[in-house]
């Protein structure tokens, strides 16, 4: 992971949120308040617009700025949660380039930040149900010598699997928790946007390897 890749990743996330905002809103109307698509789209559009003006010496600098901007424009629960994820991830990357093992530990910092703020655990039907398996898959791949593209692809697959696994869960955090048993049978919007973020990382890393 380097500065250029961090920029491309963030742009790819913005494109994914633009493309899938209706899906996220539709999922959120089933068990939330129908604003997740609009919020994620507004947040990452703002990041994409400001990205050329982000001056950073490290990939982490780009990602930390991304997090700070998300906190300042998104609102709702997703602003602080995604903002904290990117800020914690970014703060942990203080070299111009990071190898996959280092990036895995930065991803872990991001997850820790979300856990602390949201006080949620795996199985609560939240973004953590996509993030935690993605991190585990990324780590495993990186530990066995996978490069960023391979580790990210494994993470994206695991995130999507985790996302689908939220369908039968009963929500215990956030607005969906008010539904009780009626939240069962719906895919969590936060886990879905997290899976989009990891898929954007995998696509970005694959394209970068192709180009190299």
């Amino acid at each position: 992971m380097d500065i250029a890749l961090a920029r491309t990743w963030v742009q790819a996330i913005a494109a994914a949120m633009d493309k899938h905002k209706d899906l996220l809103t539709q999922l959120d109307s089933a068990i939330g308040d129908a604003d997740h698509g609009a919020n994620m789209h507004r947040g990452f559009s703002a990041v994409a617009a400001e990205l050329p003006r982000f001056e950073a010496k490290t990939a982490g600098g780009i990602l930390a700025r991304t997090g700070a901007l998300l906190i300042s424009v998104v609102g709702g629960a997703s602003g602080p949660l995604y903002g904290t994820a990117f800020r914690s991830l970014g703060k942990a990357l203080d070299a111009p380039r990071a190898d996959p093992a280092t990036f895995a530990e930065a991803l872990a910092e991001g997850l820790d930040g979300v856990r602390r703020l949201g006080a949620a655990a795996e199985g609560d039907k939240t973004m953590i149900d996509a993030y935690a398996p993605a991190l585990a898959a990324f780590r495993t791949s990186a530990a066995s010598g996978g490069d960023l593209a391979e580790a990210s692809a494994a993470a994206a697959d695991a995130a999507e699997q985790g996302m689908r696994a939220t369908v039968p869960m009963q929500a215990r955090k956030g607005r969906a928790s008010y539904l009780g048993a009626r939240s069962v049978g719906h895919q969590d919007p936060g886990a879905t946007s997290t899976a989009l973020i990891f898929r954007a990382l995998a696509d970005t890393a694959a394209a970068a390897r192709e180009a190299a």
Binding site: N39, G75, G79
Partner: peptide, 11 residues
């Protein structure tokens, strides 16, 4: 005031 049904931001 935040956006419709969305919390305002810390700033």
């Amino acid at each position: 005031p935040g956006e419709v049904f969305t919390s305002p931001v810390p700033g």
